[in-house]
Write a protein that binds this DNA or RNA. Sequence first.
DNA 1: ATGGTGGCGCGGCCA
Length: 254
Amino acid sequence: MKIATWNVNSLKIRIEQVMDWLASSQCDILCLQETKLTDENFPADVIKAAGYHVAYSGQKTYNGVAIIAKQPISNVVTDVPGLDDPQRRIMCATVGDIRVLDLYVVNGKEVGTDKYHYKLNWLEKVTDYIADQQQQHENFVVVGDFNIAPEDRDVHNPVSWTDKILCSKPERDALQKIVDLGFTEVFREFDQPEKSFSWWDYRSGGFEKNMGLRIDLILTTEAMTKQCTSCVVDTEPRKLERPSDHAPVVAEFG
DNA sequence: ATGGTGGCGCGGCCA
């Protein structure tokens, strides 16, 4: 059983790549971010025609999340309780006996800006929601584009990124608060190549130089961690023409 | 690098 997260940076542009990847990866649950499509424009027909179930919560131009699954999707939540936010950044749903939370964490632009403070507040409210869901679901995974590199080894050039957006201490502390609820950032449970990243800037040939950050994460509760047999970044889609700037991250469960 | 590229949508915002 495979669960994956992928920031596709526009599903309209990337739908063919997503369908191809679903088929080749044999993924069971795929959580998307940055679909950038309103719900009436979401390509649900294409996904359903390929035999998948899908749930989506989008808006025009920015943000947007969706879950594609081989099994039916139920009990879908698209708003953080206690957070009045028009931005479509979360989807919580049940697939089989697993509760899945798909997050598109706020980028934050630059440390100290309004967007940065919005990010930290958003993370606080989401953390409360994660704690709530964790109490109700033993098999619970939180995945997505966290827009936070957990440690310096997740950054191509940690010196130049020190205290910068995606790497600042308050952001890393906010991530740690979630982990401290009892989650495992499951990528680090396995041997990984050095300089493993999941996002590379389009600018200046970031991917070709492997100048990236690892900001797409999979967090698992203890029951799920025990079943997890691998977690990898699949860099293949990043090599295609007109790729997303993110690669999918895939965890396999026994 | 106060710029570099890409997506949306047609100017400027966001990442």
